[in-house]
């Protein structure tokens, strides 16, 4: 039974939601606008640290702390975007990946009074948990705790709202300008659009959605730790986005759920297999690595035989091949 319930549990858990939101932000950056942001982890980190530290160290109430977290992600977008968005796409990629690493190292080594180094910040979930309407449902649904259930309901509602917003925006003339910038920004400039301004708006919006991913992850874990936000965070989110198909509204959600589901299924299946197979062939210590190798193989096959992702449009990919 674990082969089904554990993957289901992991695919919809708070951690998965935080990746869904991070990938949705990346979808606006990369999928629609063509901005190569390799530092989505920085937006999630800035958002969740700002929220957690203001609550724990400064006693700010929960809702204003969330708003401060969003504000932090906006400031971060400006810091990254102002110097680089006038330049070629590569420069944004370099700056974002550097800023993400700088932030992670800053949180894990400096201002220990506020950030508590590798232990992370905890003790900020009180208000949120006090609103939990599912307190008596502990462990009844897929063995989720009552707190997880509450985070998941709120998290998936946020995912639904953000998806609706992205859907509406991307079929508007605003979304048309973003997609055009992805195709050729000089052409857009020649038609009288302020390309820099649009890129900045896209960076800010995607960054704020990434920060929301940080909030959900933090509330799910009840702590904010620097190592959550290493470069893997960004690249796993990218993987999920491409798995679903870039520039499709629902592809980050489906991609993330599938990714976690398959990853979790692999580890359960492999650990059951390791009971049967002799230890020399499949050691239970190696399962963690083997499952990533298998998922990588699946992704490679997907990119070879379905390069547009699960939801992408084959005709669009064919245009690139010209």
């Amino acid at each position: 039974m674990d082969l089904i319930t554990t993957p289901l549990h992991d695919a919809f858990a708070p951690v998965a939601i935080s990746y869904v939101l991070a990938a949705m932000g990346l979808n606006i950056h990369y999928g629609y606008t063509g901005l190569l942001n390799f530092g989505q982890a920085a937006f999630a980190a800035a958002g969740s640290y700002a929220m957690a530290v203001t609550i724990v160290s400064f006693g700010v109430p929960f809702i204003p702390a969330i708003l401060l977290g969003l504000a932090a992600s906006v400031v971060l977008s400006l810091v990254m975007g102002v110097p680089t968005l006038r330049l070629r796409a590569d420069y944004l990629a370099i700056v974002t990946i550097a800023v993400a690493e700088i932030l992670r190292l800053l949180f894990s080594t400096s201002f220990k009074k506020y950030f508590h180094a590798r232990d992370g910040v905890s003790g900020f979930t009180g208000t949120f948990r006090s609103w939990n309407p599912f307190k008596d449902m502990e462990g009844t649904f897929l063995s989720f705790s009552a707190n997880d259930l509450w985070v998941m309901v709120v998290g998936w509602i946020i995912v639904a709202l953000v998806s609706t917003l992205v859907f509406l925006l991307m079929r508007s003339p605003w979304g048309r300008v973003l997609k055009s910038i992805r195709e050729d920004e000089d052409a857009v400039r020649s038609l009288g659009k302020n390309v820099y301004g649009y890129k900045m708006q896209a960076l800010v919006l995607g960054g704020m959605i990434g920060a929301m991913g940080g909030f959900v992850g933090a509330l799910g874990l009840a702590s904010v730790q620097p190592d959550t936000f290493n470069t893997d965070f960004t690249f796993i989110a990218f993987t999920m986005l491409i798995l679903g198909g870039a520039a499709r509204v629902l592809s980050p959600a489906v991609g993330a759920v599938l990714f976690w589901g398959v990853l979790s299924f692999m580890s359960v299946a492999l650990s059951e297999l390791s009971d049967i197979v002799p230890g020399d062939l499949l050691d239970s210590n190696r399962i963690g690595n083997i499952r990533f190798a298998v998922v990588g193989l699946v992704l490679m096959l997907l990119m070879i035989y379905r390069p547009q992702g699960l939801f992408g449009d084959r005709k669009e990919i064919a245009i690139d091949a010209r």
């Binding site: 048309r176 997609k179 055009s180 992805r182 195709e183 050729d184 000089d186 052409a187 857009v188 400039r189 020649s190 038609l191 009288g192 659009k193 302020n194 390309v195 669009e316 245009i319 690139d320």
Partner: peptide, 23 residues
Amino acid sequence: SASRVARLGMVRTFQLTKVLSKL
């Protein structure tokens, strides 16, 4: 800026045609 120049009424095309392929 180039975009402002275009809005003022001076619009250009390019030697290597720039259509937005996926639109």
